[in-house]
């Protein structure tokens, strides 16, 4: 029901951030995620950052994936 994609904040001007996804940049509002900082990854939905991505959790999920792989291989 809601498309949102991870994008990296490359600059902030007041409550507007410029975000980048694979070389594509767009201005998004930080009104809903004012805690977002430069270099953070945020979920972008309809022109707004709606959540800061937890990189540690993302890494954990990936680690878990890797374990699945290794486990299956061994």
């Amino acid at each position: 029901m809601c498309l949102a994609i991870p994008a990296k904040i490359i600059s902030i001007d007041d409550n507007i951030a410029e975000v980048e996804i694979a070389g594509v940049t767009r201005k998004v509002s930080l009104d809903l995620a004012p805690e977002a900082k430069l270099d953070d990854y945020v979920l972008v939905h309809a022109g707004f950052a709606i959540q800061v991505i937890d990189e540690e959790e993302a890494l954990k999920t990936l680690e878990l994936f890797k374990e699945i792989l290794e486990h299956e291989v061994s």
Binding site: L3, I5, A22
Partner: peptide, 11 residues
């Protein structure tokens, strides 16, 4: 990759 990203943004 950029086209893919733009597509993700615009749906």
């Amino acid at each position: 990759e950029q086209v893919l990203a733009a597509c993700e943004i615009l749906g």
